[in-house]
Amino acid sequence: MRTAIFDDKKIYAILNNDENIILSSLDPKSHKAKRKKLDVDSVFYPENNESLKSLNNKELMVAVNDDVDSNKNSMLIIIDKKTLDTKREIVMEKGFTIYKTHLDDKDKIMLISHEGEVKMFNRDFKEILTEKIPLKFKSDDERLEEVKILDGKIYALVRMFDRDKDGVIGRIIEYDIESKDSKEISLKSDRDWEMTSLEVVK
Rank of each mutant, 00 (worst) to 15 (best):
K9D: 14
K9N: 15
K9H: 15
I11Q: 08
I11G: 09
A13P: 00
A13Y: 03
I14Y: 07
L15C: 11
N16Q: 13
D18C: 09
D18Y: 15
N20W: 03
I22W: 01
I22H: 00
S24W: 02
L26M: 06
D27L: 05
D27N: 15
D27R: 04
D27T: 07
P28T: 12
K29V: 13
K32A: 13
V40S: 03
D41W: 03
D41M: 06
V43Q: 01
V43H: 02
F44C: 00
Y45V: 15
Y45H: 15
Y45I: 14
E47F: 15
E47A: 15
N49T: 15
N49G: 13
E50N: 15
S51Y: 02
S51P: 00
L52F: 10
N56E: 09
N57M: 10
K58P: 06
K58V: 04
L60T: 04
M61V: 13
V62Y: 10
A63N: 09
A63V: 04
A63D: 07
D66G: 04
V68K: 11
S70N: 14
N71R: 12
S74A: 12
S74H: 01
L76T: 09
I77S: 01
I77K: 05
I77C: 03
I78M: 06
I79G: 02
D80G: 06
K81N: 10
K81R: 13
L84I: 09
L84R: 04
T86P: 07
K87L: 12
K87N: 12
R88F: 03
E89F: 13
I90N: 06
V91G: 08
